[in-house]
Amino acid sequence: MMESKSFPGNVDSLDSLREYVGERAQQAGLAKKPTYALKLAVDEIATNIILYGYQEAGLVADFTVLSEITEQALMVILEDIAAPFDPLARELPDSGDLTKSLEDREIGGLGIYLTINGVDEFSYEYLNGKNRNKFVMKIAST
């Protein structure tokens, strides 16, 4: 069964968002490390939605977390009504960027890099006027 929960679109929501994702991960039986990776991924994408999709555009709105636990996986979808933005369309830091010293680094791109590298599946679609960022964590069979 799909569960739905909305949060105000500001950075004060991030703490309760991570707590909620942590609760869902616990219900799904995810271990500590994948739980952290999922919380990090959802936090990173939600931060982009809040700062760029909403605040920079002068939009005051909620975003919604849809989640579903099956035998195989925990699926989380972040849904927002900001302008279409595909996080996968932007260029990710490559191995050259990631070995640069701090003083030569460009600030940006790290969040989406951590998202894609942290979850088992990440996908994006724009559907019915909404951005849908989807995260899947597989549940290890025992």
Partner: peptide
């Protein structure tokens, strides 16, 4: 217990602001 890329960006910022000789 948690650090997102926003925290990483402050580390990068520290080095860029204080200078390359700063040891972190």
């Amino acid at each position: 217990s948690f650090m997102s890329s926003a925290g990483l960006r402050v580390l990068i910022y520290s080095k860029q602001k204080i200078g390359p000789k700063l040891a972190i």
